Simulated assay, not measured.
Amino acid sequence: MKVGTYAVDARNGKVGRVMAREGGFVQLRPPGGGVEWDCPPEVLTAVEAGEALRGLVREVNQERRLP
């Protein structure tokens, strides 16, 4: 995965933007910003920007539902 592209972490279904590769992992950041997480490259699937936007909308909607 190239830095700047979007990918889905198959372990949890989260969409993230590829920020870097470090120590055998790909570092992803949520589309709206936030804390990066490490993901093994073999469980990543590339997605288009539209899918990344849908992931951001899902996250925002979920946050609004929390007490």
Rank of each mutant, 00 (worst) to 15 (best):
K14V: 02
P67F: 12
V8L: 05
L66W: 10
E51F: 07
Y6S: 03
E51L: 15
G33I: 10
G23H: 14
T5Q: 13
T45W: 04
E59D: 10
L66E: 13
R17H: 04
Y6W: 14
A20E: 13
V43Q: 05
M1S: 06
G13K: 14
K2F: 03
A46I: 03
A10M: 07
A46N: 03
M19N: 05
G50K: 14
Q27H: 12
L53Q: 15
V43M: 05
R65V: 05
G23N: 13
D38V: 09
P41K: 07
L53R: 15
E22K: 12
Q27E: 10
Q27K: 13
R58F: 08
R54Y: 08
L53N: 12
R65Y: 08
E42S: 06
V18K: 03
G32A: 11
E59F: 00
L44K: 03
K14D: 10
A10N: 06
Q62S: 15
R54G: 10
P31N: 01
P67H: 10
R65N: 07
R64F: 10
Q27T: 09
V35S: 12
K2E: 10
R21W: 13
R54N: 11
V3C: 04
F25G: 02
M1T: 00
L66K: 12
K2N: 04
L66M: 14
R65P: 01
V57D: 11
V26W: 00
L28M: 03
V15I: 09
G23S: 08
N61E: 10
G34V: 04
E36C: 08
W37P: 01
C39E: 01
R11F: 07
M1E: 02
E48T: 14
R29K: 11
R65A: 12
A7F: 03
E59I: 01
A7L: 02
R54D: 08
E51M: 12
L66R: 12
G32F: 06
P67S: 15
L53P: 08
K2Y: 05
P31A: 03
P67T: 09
N61D: 11
F25P: 01
L56C: 11
R58S: 13
L56M: 12
G16W: 00
V3A: 12
V60Q: 15
Y6K: 05
V60P: 07
V3F: 08
V3I: 11
R54K: 09
C39R: 02
R64D: 10
P40Q: 08
A46H: 04
V60L: 15
P30H: 08
E42W: 06
R54M: 09
G13T: 02
V3E: 13
E59K: 00
P41D: 10
V35A: 13
E36L: 09
L53I: 15
F25E: 11
A49E: 11
N61G: 10
R21Y: 14
E51W: 07
A20W: 01
G32T: 06
E51C: 14
V35K: 11
T45F: 04
G33C: 06
P30A: 08
L53M: 14
R65K: 13
D9C: 05
P41A: 11
L56G: 11
Q27I: 06
G55Y: 03
Y6H: 12
G24E: 02
R17G: 07
Q27Y: 11
G32I: 03
L53W: 15
V8T: 05
R11P: 00
N61W: 13
K2G: 00
V26H: 03
R58I: 14
